[in-house]
Design a protein around this nucleic acid. Structure first.
Ligand code: SF4
Ligand code: SF4
Lengths: 149, 149
DNA sequence: TTTAAATAAGACAAAGTTGTCTTATTTAAA
DNA sequence: TTTAAATAAGACAACTTTGTCTTATTTAAA
């Protein structure tokens, strides 16, 4: 798997948040129930998104989560980095020690083409773009039977 | 990580085997020492390659491993499948339940382009091709200081 | 002021992957 | 025939990821 479950949940939660932003803070409980993700696990992930500066959270009644910045400008890559750190994509194919391009492993060229292309895409795709696609009904972020997302 | 450690070790071991085939059976111990891979862990992986029909093994003195088929015709993909099963690459990006192209997740198109390209490459690249590249000194399958591989 | 709703924090459990070790079995060579 | 070299098999430990649970804290509303 290219992405950890944590990343996947984080991306889906961010898209949910972008879909439902009407100024109000959205509780983690609501997200976890609608996306069918373990509540406590999701709160942990959301705390990473908070400390990563992607969302902000407010405690107490009427509290919840909100974007810190406009999700128009938040890429999938930023979410992945906030959750799993910077080396999810820099880990390379055979993971040899002291690796580099001086004397690479046999799959280096092919692998780097592929991973660079994925990286580019992850940098380009914004949370808002995905939310828009969900809104127009082309794609989904939850199980197939859920009519809402 | 796209590939599990088991796969990585399996690929490196197969390339080693292709580099050192002079009719004789190669003991797992020799491979594990030269590639700096845990011996017992590697034997487990090699048993998967055996039951997958990629290599054959002979017990006892002068025993060891040998290719079952010509490594000219063994792709990296076959090794990955023998070790990790068929769904390493069919696992999809967001891993939604009941997934499909009818109503895909937002990253489906981009993801499938990328993964198809990687799959193609993994199907094309043979163990022998990698071994040849190691022989000519362009690439390596072990740590940088090792002059042999 | 009290209560209910919400995040924060962290202990803990379950599961998967990776790695170690021991014992049994097979085989060729001494 | 004995011995050493090798795989086979599987128990078990360490580590990582994933998931659950409990307690503390904060906040708005009743
Ligand atoms: S040579 Fe390239 S692909 Fe291979 S292990 Fe190193 S960085 Fe990764
Ligand atoms: S829509 Fe495509 S990329 Fe997304 S989860 Fe399903 S198969 Fe994977």
């Amino acid at each position: 798997m290219l992405l950890s479950k944590s990343c996947i949940y984080g991306i889906r939660a961010a898209v949910y948040l972008a879909l439902n932003r009407n100024g109000k803070y959205v509780p983690v409980r609501e997200i976890s129930e609608n996306l069918d993700i373990s509540f406590h696990f999701l709160t942990k992930i959301c705390r990473k998104l908070s400390s990563g500066g992607i969302i902000k959270s407010i405690k107490g009644a009427q509290g919840g989560l909100k974007f810190e910045r406009d999700p128009e400008n938040i890429s999938i890559m930023e979410i992945v980095i906030a959750i799993d750190g910077n080396n999810r994509f820099s880990e390379c194919l055979l993971g040899l020690p002291d690796c580099g391009i001086l004397k690479p492993c046999p799959l280096h060229d092919d692998w780097f083409d592929a991973i660079e292309s994925i990286k580019e895409k992850f940098n380009d795709i914004t949370v808002n773009r995905i939310a828009e696609e969900v809104r127009t009904g082309n794609v989904r972020i939850t199980e197939i039977n859920n009519p809402d997302f």
